[in-house]
Design a protein around this nucleic acid. Structure first.
Length: 807
RNA sequence: GGGCGAUUAGCUCAGUUGGCUAGAGCAUCUGCCUUACAAGCAGAGGGUCGUAGGUUCGAGUCCUACAUCGCCCACCA
């Protein structure tokens, strides 16, 4: 027997435990088709926020849908505990910087801390009802993952897509590491635009350069004007004298200078921005690098050495002003590039870095991107735009500690890079010996290890390889190449999706997955994104789960259109709560009427039963079509709408027949029983995608043919009652009008109708005659007069038995 | 500046390839204890579908322009 009230907390704990013990979601190879999902390993940086709940739920529902559709679902989970986010977490918890703690101890703390958070994460996601096989869970710093990540590196080395080079790279002087273009976040800051007077050495002509970064004056190597700039092209070929710094640099011509921007004269420093690097390469300019790694001016710079970058800026402006070299200063608000992990402005540095070639294969990445089906389709445009706009190869080395080490040593004499052998992986060059005794180039016997570790994306971009156990003897390469689905939020299209495509193309020459499903964001308030740094997410996932139950939270997470942002909305949650409650109550009602029910072949359905079965068939068709397009929210909406109609109209009509067999006969009652038995089962299956807990509870009480409702399969519909679906709706319309009449008279719906006069088209008349007992019982009709008309229908008059109501 | 999306009832949102009178929930108002459910049920009011043009027999839906909001990118001279 179902309980009178549904106690969500108790039941959810019970079934979660049951699923774990019975291994309901475990993955085993069998002869079914595999549907595989590449799930984002959440970054282990301390907090799961409500946004995770949202986007993971959506992919999870697809896993359940595919399972119900008969697929063998491969749905693993991972934790991204590798790299800078974990390091920052540990630094924050310890209140110390990594270099103060020491490399070895720091790594130990990273492992310990991430382990602790991962078990919390696991509990939270399990609680949410994530139907993953935890046996296949991975971490991005485990030995097996390091092995695969290093193997990926070796494969790319073999294929010539990796190079090691001294090259300008983006540098974060807060995190003390190089970073990749994808890790940049733009930020608006207030600064000043300084108009500095320069002069030509040849004839002392004054010209002005506007700059926001005067501290770069000591790094100036050249001045550019546009060759077609009529007012300034006479400067080309002359020499510029730099005030205060007192150096001379050539004035050159380049088309890239915008005549109307600033003063039309640009200084080129090494390096202030992307264009500087381009010019530096193009014209083979000298290198004057003036910053230290931790954001100071180099000691070699007179007067400014040792100052922080911003201090130097202030001082040089002051010096320029004192010397009369400032024409004027304007306030300016502009966007700067910052490191997304810490929010600090990035600089450029030149050092030895490992790069993956991106620029030479953009066309391939676009082609592969087009082979993948993107849901919603327009998300492909974001990918395409990103690929088209990439300006750098992918710098994968990080001057950090906690991550996948490069399997590389260098010859101490000649610098030749020695790469590990594949069979020795995983290796840590800081501990392990190189695979050769002598440098193959110069023959010396001294080696130094590579200190850098890999970018965290270098590893998370191989999640399909991790999932397929790439390079292992027992692997899933045959079933996961490609995987069926990648699911993630729109913010990591440019990183996770893009880099995974890059790697998959280089390793296998093919797409990593067939489909990509992109979810939107949870907004803190309308139009305000939840920010990692601002922590403006007011809803703690665990608290929300405790308050509303997992099923209800999933109702919220499953609503809305795919790819569309959503706000955390109490109203949606209370609507979900009501729906859950209604499911419970109707199940109780149905259980009550199935006490003597035995399932057997039966085709002699009553008209009203055929109506609701026909309505269900139409709904189910739409429902499944939405799910095929990964439109969870629209599918749920369709299902929900049908369900309320089922409760408020069908059940209200059929209940009389169920309660009073003496009046209607056992066969008519059985028809109703069979209908509610069939439909509740099918509804539970559909709802189980969204509400795994309550559907399991009801299924186990009422049906329990399988070990779990989540192991059942949606069967094809073998009935076709399209005509009844339309005619029945018209009958319901008439019922609604008659109910309205009662309501308008402020009387109970039980009030008898003395006489109901209606006129209806002939087919509807036949239907009403067929459904006459149900119809009359539902409205408490004493006398019914049905007139026939050409088309349409009308309620002519309703005479209520008001006296009866007074009793 | 470039790309993408959004704009529909007081609020949150559906509205599929153009097709009868534009829908739902919440909120508001009016009723109803009805042998599952008052956390319920039955009703009512509420919209010139962002603006202006265009295509069409017909436009919330397609096209163009504009406005507002959001996201991503570029912009450090």
């Amino acid at each position: 027997m179902l309980d009178k009230k549904y106690n969500a907390a108790e039941k959810e704990a019970k079934w979660l435990n049951y699923w774990n013990e019975e291994k309901i979601y475990s993955f085993k190879r069998d002869d079914r088709k595999v549907y595989s999902i590449d799930t984002p390993p959440p970054t282990v940086n301390g907090k799961i926020h409500i946004g995770h709940i949202f986007s993971y739920s959506q992919a999870e529902m697809i896993a359940r849908y595919k399972r119900l559709s008969g697929y063998n679902v491969f749905y693993p989970f991972g934790f991204d505990d590798n790299g800078l986010p974990s390091e920052r977490l540990v630094e924050k918890e310890e209140g110390k910087k990594a270099h103060e703690i020491g490399r070895e101890e720091f790594s130990r703390l990273c492992y310990e801390t991430t382990d602790r958070y991962e078990s919390e994460f696991k509990n939270l996601f399990s609680r949410l009802g994530v139907s993953t096989d935890w046996k296949n869970a991975y971490k991005t710093v485990s030995p097996s993952t390091i092995k695969i990540s290093q193997a990926s590196f070796l494969d790319l080395v073999d294929k010539g897509h990796v190079y090691h080079k001294e090259s300008p790279a983006l540098w974060c002087n807060e995190c003390l590491t190089s970073i990749a273009q994808a890790e940049l976040e733009t930020k608006t800051i207030k600064t000043t635009f300084n108009y500095v007077k320069f002069t030509t050495v040849e004839d002392g002509e004054e010209f002005i350069i506007a700059t926001t970064r005067p501290e770069l004056l000591p790094a100036i190597v050249c001045v550019f004007v546009n060759p077609s700039d009529e007012n300034r092209k006479h400067l080309i070929g002359k020499t510029a004298h730099i005030p205060v710094i007192d150096v001379e640099v050539p004035i050159m011509a380049d088309e890239k200078v915008a005549i109307d921007k600033g003063t039309g004269v640009v200084m080129c420093c090494t390096f202030g921005d992307q264009t500087d690097i381009e010019w530096w390469k193009k014209y083979n300019l000298p290198l004057k690098y003036i910053f230290t790694d931790d954001g100071h001016i180099n000691d070699t710079v007179p007067n400014y050495g040792g100052l922080k970058i911003k201090e130097a800026r202030a001082k040089i402006i002051e010096d320029l002003q004192n010397g009369g070299y400032i024409d004027h200063i304007e306030d300016l608000e502009h966007e700067v590039q910052t490191h997304e992990r810490c929010g600090h402005e990035v600089e450029y540095t030149v050092m030895n870095q490992w790069f993956i070639d991106i620029m030479n294969h953009k066309d391939d990445f676009l082609r592969i991107g087009r082979e993948i089906k993107w849901y919603p389709e327009y998300m492909f445009a974001r990918y395409e735009e990103w690929v088209n706009n990439i300006a750098w190869d992918w710098c994968i080395s990080r001057q950090r500690y906690f991550g996948v080490p490069f399997p590389v040593w260098y010859c101490a004499d000649c610098g030749e890079a020695i790469i590990a052998n594949r069979e020795d992986l995983p290796v840590n060059p800081l501990v392990d010996q190189p695979p050769v005794d002598r440098c193959p180039k110069c023959g010396c016997t001294n080696f130094v290890p590579e200190n850098d570790v890999m970018d965290t994306w270098a590893t998370s971009s191989v999640t399909p390889l991790i999932n397929m156990r790439y390079g292992e003897e027992e692997n899933y390469e045959d079933i996961l190449k490609p995987m069926s689905l990648r699911a993630n939020a729109s913010d990591i299209i440019r990183t996770w999706d893009f880099y995974t495509i890059v790697k998959s193309f280089y390793h296998f020459g093919m797409r990593p997955w067939d489909n990509v499903m992109i979810s939107g964001f949870v907004m803190a308030n309308k139009g305000e994104k939840i920010s990692k740094s601002k922590s403006n997410s007011k809803q703690e996932p665990l608290e929300v789960l405790n308050t509303y139950s997992a099923d209800v939270v999933r109702y919220w997470a499953g609503s809305g259109r795919l790819g569309t942002d959503i706000a955390f909305n109490e109203e949606t949650l209370s609507r979900g709560k009501k729906l859950i409650n209604k499911i419970w109550n109707v199940a109780k009602f149905i259980e009550m009427h199935l006490a003597d029910y035995e399932d057997r072949e039966f085709t002699d359905y009553e008209f009203i039963d055929r109506w609701i079965l026909g309505k269900f068939a139409i709904m189910q068709d739409q429902f499944l079509r939405y799910l095929e397009d990964y439109e969870i929210g629209l599918a749920l909406n369709t299902l929900e709408k049908f369900f309320w109609n089922f409760c408020d109209n069908y059940i209200e009509i059929v209940k009389h027949r169920l309660y009073r067999p003496e009046e209607f006969g056992d066969i008519k009652r059985y028809s109703g029983q069979k209908t509610i038995y069939t439909l509740l089962y099918r509804l539970l299956q559909d709802f189980s995608i969204f509400f795994p807990y309550i559907t399991e509870e009801i299924y186990q009480e009422l049906y329990h043919q399988e070990k779990s409702i989540h192991l059942t399969q949606i069967e094809k519909i073998d009935f076709d009652f399209k005509d009844e679906a339309v005619l029945g709706d018209n009958i319901v319309d008439i019922i609604s009008i008659a109910r309205g009449e009662k309501t308008n008279n402020n009387v109970s719906l039980k009030t008898p109708i003395k006489t109901l006069n209606i006129s209806v088209y002939s087919k509807l008349k036949e239907a009403i005659e067929e459904a006459i007992l149900d119809f009359k019982a539902t409205l408490f009709i004493e006398n019914l007069n049905v007139e026939e008309t050409e088309s349409s229908f009308e309620v002519k008059s309703i005479i209520l038995d008001l006296e009866d109501n007074d009793n």
